[in-house]
Design a protein around this nucleic acid. Structure first.
Lengths: 144, 144
DNA sequence: GCATAAAATGCAATTGAGTTGCAATTGGCT
DNA sequence: AGCCAATTGCAACTCAATTGCATTTTATGC
C-alpha cells in the first residue's frame, strides 16, 4: 500500500484514486499549493469539483492546512506532523513564507508565531503570520 | 469642505462624489471593509467598477491599506496616520484582528508585528499578522 | 466472491469577486 | 465659459468556488 493510502486509512478516509493522487502530490511537493496548481500536477483528469471536495475533506481531517495567501486564492499545504506530534492536538501555529521572486509559499515549520499582547478585552484564538521576501534559493541566485 | 474632500485635496486626487462618499465611509467605520460591504453602505448608486477603481486609487495614494482576510476576499481599512506620521514613509506593519463572533476586522494600530528570525538564506520584506479571536465588545457580551 | 448502503464522483448550472476596453461624462484649470 | 485629462458607466469577460442531482465506487458483512 502506498504511503498516501496508508495515511488515508489511518484517518479512516476511503481510499479513492483522486485522494491518493492528490495526497501524493502534497507529500511530494514541499510548497503550499492552490487548486489550479494541483490540477496541473495531476496526471489523471478529475473533475474540478472532486478536487475541491477532496481538499475540503483533507482539511477537515487535518491532513492539510490552509496557508495564507495575499492574492486571495486559497492555498493548502501538507501537514508536517513531525514538528507538532508532541503537542497532541494538531496546530498550525508556524510562520509561512512567500517568495516574491519565485512566488512559492512554504511552511517554516520550525518557526512558531510569536505571542503578542493584545489590548485589554481582546481574547486571542488562532493567528496567521505570513512573511514576504526572498527564499533561500532566490536570494542565493540574486547574490551571484 | 468636508473632511474627506480635504483629505483628497491634500493627496492631489480629484474630488468626485464617488470618492468623497467612499472615503467618508472609511473614516466613519473603524473596521476593515470589503468591496461588497462598502457597496451596501453607499447611499448613492455607483457602478461596481467605479468602486473598484476608487479603492485602487486610494490604495496607491496611501489613503487605505490592504487588510489580510482568510476568506480570500480583499479588505481595506482607512490609514490611521496618527500612529505612523513620525516614521516618514507610511507603513502598515501593525497587527490586524478578526473577531470570530461579529466578523469584524480591525486594525490594532498600536501593536506592531514582532520581528522574527528566519532560517539561513531567507530575506525578509513585508509581513502580515492576523489574529483571530473575540474583540472587546464580543468578549464582554459573552462574560455577562 | 458478491450484494448492499453509504460515500465519493461527474456533470451542469450558478454565484460572486475582480478585470478590461471603450465611449460618455465631469473635474480642475486658465 | 471652455478645454483636456481624469473619471465614470456599461458590457462583456475571467477565474475561483459552490450546489443539486444522478451515477459510480468503496468498504464491509455475508
Amino acid at each position: 500500500m502506498s504511503n498516501a493510502a496508508e495515511v488515508l486509512k489511518n484517518k479512516k478516509l476511503r481510499i479513492t484514486p483522486a485522494r491518493v493522487h492528490v495526497l501524493d502530490i502534497f507529500i511530494r511537493e514541499a510548497a503550499a499549493l492552490t487548486h489550479a496548481e494541483i490540477e496541473k500536477l495531476l496526471i489523471d483528469d478529475f473533475d474540478r469539483v472532486t478536487l475541491y471536495r477532496t481538499l475540503t475533506s483533507f482539511l477537515e481531517n487535518g491532513l492539510i492546512h490552509k496557508v495564507p495567501d495575499e492574492s486571495g486564492i486559497q492555498r493548502f499545504a501538507y501537514c508536517n506532523h513531525e514538528h507538532h506530534e508532541h503537542s497532541g492536538a494538531h496546530s498550525h501555529t508556524h510562520v509561512h513564507f512567500f517568495c516574491m521572486q519565485c512566488s512559492k509559499t512554504t511552511c517554516l515549520d520550525d518557526i512558531l508565531i510569536p505571542a503578542i499582547k493584545l489590548p485589554e478585552g481582546f481574547v486571542q484564538d488562532e493567528s496567521v503570520f505570513l512573511v514576504k521576501g526572498l527564499c533561500r534559493k532566490c536570494s542565493k541566485n540574486k547574490a551571484e
